[in-house]
């Protein structure tokens, strides 16, 4: 699906109502980020600002480093053996790679949604309650139930699962699973939500629901989304960054990137000449 949109001639209507917020406060500030997997360098001197309360889309061809960048923000790259990150990634002015920052706290503040829906083999309730439980956020059973309910509501899943909270989360459809995972992520009230191609495993209808959801969540969270689909980037994001071969080619308000790219590579990519 992503492939289709990438090669088709582009007629993307950019929603002007979402016009980028040039003056919004900066939530994440990346400066000269380099990432190495062993000998291989995956990211080269990436510097990018991610504004608060908005959706920032990272686009680019496969293997361009956009997911790598995303995973550097919540330090998921730490789990990869032989991975090294240099440069600064600031969250509210603090370097996430600083010794004083605990990845546990960081990841509580920065939630993540993956490409393939990955609900735990537990009940729907337990899936959403997972974060609050491990972090000790809810002080009692009632509060936990309230958190689960409101998270599911925000993820737009409540009406579908309210009567089967205690059935396995793996029994839901793909789109429902992905919304369940989003509910799980927001249950701890993170400040940032990272989404790594959240719709690539979903059908168009489920994709549309997730996109709506992303748009609703934008008001409360800073969202960074990696996507293969330029149409999706155009639909949901206010800011877009184009990655190519491990380098950030250009970044700017989504409208500008799609209508008036400055770099010829961006131009080629969004018009489907490669990717």
């Amino acid at each position: 699906m992503a492939h289709d949109t990438a090669t088709a001639p582009v007629h993307i209507a950019v929603d002007r109502g979402h016009a980028a917020l040039p003056n919004a406060p900066i939530k994440i500030r990346a400066r000269d980020v380099n990432v190495f997997y062993g000998e291989k360098q995956a990211l080269f001197d990436v510097s990018l600002d991610v504004p608060e309360n908005s959706v920032t889309a990272l686009i680019g061809p496969s293997g361009c480093g956009k997911s790598t960048f995303l995973r550097s923000i919540n330090r998921m790259n730490d789990t990869v053996a032989g991975c090294k990150v240099t440069g600064r990634i600031e969250l509210d002015g603090e370097d996430v790679n600083d010794r004083s920052i605990d990845p546990v706290v960081l990841r509580a503040r920065v939630g993540m949604v993956f490409q393939k829906p990955n609900p735990f083999p537990k009940t729907i309730f337990e899936n959403v309650a997972y974060g609050p439980r491990i972090h000790g956020i809810a002080s009692g059973k009632a509060e936990l139930e309230a958190i689960v309910e409101s998270s599911l509501k925000r993820a737009g899943l409540w009406t579908e699962v309210a009567d089967r909270l205690h059935q396995p989360g793996t029994g839901l459809s793909g789109g429902q699973q992905q919304r369940l995972v989003i509910a799980r992520a927001i249950a701890v009230s993170p400040e940032v939500i990272l989404m790594d191609e959240p719709c690539s495993a979903l059908d168009p209808i489920a994709t549309a629901r997730i996109e709506e959801l992303i748009d609703e969540l934008r008001n409360q969270y800073c969202i960074v989304i990696v996507t293969h689909s330029m149409a999706q980037a155009a639909r949901v994001s206010q800011k877009t960054a184009f990655f190519h071969l491990g380098k950030l080619v250009e970044a700017g308000p989504t409208g500008e990137i799609f209508t008036n790219p400055r770099d010829s590579r961006t131009q080629d990519y969004i018009t489907g000449r490669f990717g």
Binding site: N74, M76, T79, P103, V104, V105, L106, R107, A108, G111, M112, F114, K116, N118, P119, F120, P121, Y130, G131, I134, H135, V181, R184, A185, V188
Partner: peptide, 19 residues
């Protein structure tokens, strides 16, 4: 992906293993 999901929630490795 299950481990990633848990770690990304801020769980420690042992919590991921146990839970």
């Amino acid at each position: 992906s299950l481990r990633d999901g848990s770690l990304a929630m801020g769980a420690t490795r042992s919590e991921t293993v146990k839970k």
